[in-house]
Design a protein around this nucleic acid. Structure first.
Lengths: 213, 213
DNA sequence: AAGCCTACCTAACACTTGTTAGGTGTCAAT
DNA sequence: ATTGACACCTAACAAGTGTTAGGTAGGCTT
């Protein structure tokens, strides 16, 4: 009974590819239709608007990231371990959903105001997953003391950059990329073993209003 | 004699701001004109085309990055030192030219094919500056062995990400951001001091065809 | 056989797009 | 006083934009 792909899914799939390579604003509804060998107006039997398609893509991609990474963030393992696995999972989502992930990362600003706000909220929450793991690692003396907010953003920027240059037919496997990135960040955070500063431990300080300085 | 700002410069300045916040494709020539309180067609007394404006912005921004970072890459100091300073300089260019840098990073794909290729070439050369410093640091045993290409891309992705979120009126000074980022990457690359592997030294291996694996 | 649903088409709508041709006024140099 | 450059305007162009209304053909159910 399993049908291969509903028309709506085909539209989103084709739109993802076009939005990624030309950008949302530079892709017309007729471009999408042409890729499916139908007429521009015929799309509206399946979708309410062009922005609607973007929203579906973006919001589904947001789901994927959270679904994969959130469970890892809640594990009871070391911060080092969780951060490594979170990085790996993030890279996996990017490389396995290259088009939708790219659209999510780059084109969400073309959504209407409310939808944009909804995504911003989810991105903040997602970023907070990384920030908290870093905070915890620092508090436990597992990580070098750093500003968790900046560090989290730096890590995510680097990981998200993969979406721009990764090619399925390239020489690098997704796994090896993930390992390299994860290793890089773990080394950046790993506490210098020469001075085993075991901070107050256990207690994680509540984040104050302003992030730094 | 110094005139404040030629009309052409005003156009590019206003266009940078609009391209950054709405994207090139979603910004009309009339939008740019309206910001200058003139009529859409009047712009063509100063510029040849919309793409021409983009090209000016993008290519000038590319210049700025190279001008600031290339001299540092050629210093005779340690790889650690050079990488740190290169990161700092890059952040400086981003934060001091927020709008043009953002446009350079995000909107260059809307250039025509040849101009796009020209920018791609310059970006590759710029990326190579970072890659070579990393290669050298690894070869000298100054850095942990890592794939220089991936590492360079990771660093630049993180640094470029700053262009998306940095605000002049935000709580973080550009300098402190630069230090944090630079510190992060240096720690990620610094060789574990417990095993002072002084590799063959001096000789830097020629990069082979395929990057890794 | 009738009705209905799905999937698509055609044609048009109101509007926006980048760009150009020709015209107007201002100001400095001749 | 004439010239010419400069900065801008108006008006239009051809093409493309997202979207809609109305129509048609085929297949499924009744």
């Amino acid at each position: 009974m399993q049908m291969v792909e509903t028309r709506r899914q085909q539209i989103e799939s084709v739109a993802s590819a076009l939005f990624r390579e030309r950008g949302y604003a530079a892709t017309s509804v007729r471009d999408i239709a042409k890729a499916l060998d139908i007429q521009g107006g015929s799309l509206y039997a399946h979708v309410a608007s062009k922005e609607d398609v973007l929203w579906s893509i973006v919001s589904r991609a947001a789901d994927r990231f959270r679904e994969r990474v959130h469970p890892i963030a809640e594990r009871q393992t070391s911060a080092t371990d969780r951060l490594r696995e979170m990085c790996r999972a993030h890279v996996e989502v990017v490389t396995q959903n290259l088009e939708t992930a790219s659209v999510f990362l780059d084109e969400w600003r073309f959504l209407g105001t409310e939808r944009q706000a909804a995504i911003a909220e989810r991105r903040d929450a997602y970023e907070a997953l990384f920030r908290r793991v870093i905070e915890e690692g620092v508090a436990r003396g597992e990580f070098t003391p750093t500003d968790p907010k900046i560090t989290a953003i730096a890590i995510l920027s680097a990981l998200n950059g993969i979406a721009t240059w990764y090619r399925l037919d390239g020489p690098l496997s997704a796994d090896s990329i993930a390992d390299q990135y994860a290793g890089l960040f773990i080394r950046a955070l790993a506490c210098d073993p020469s001075k085993p500063t075991v901070r107050p431990s256990q207690s994680i300080p509540k984040p104050r209003g302003r992030p730094i300085r």
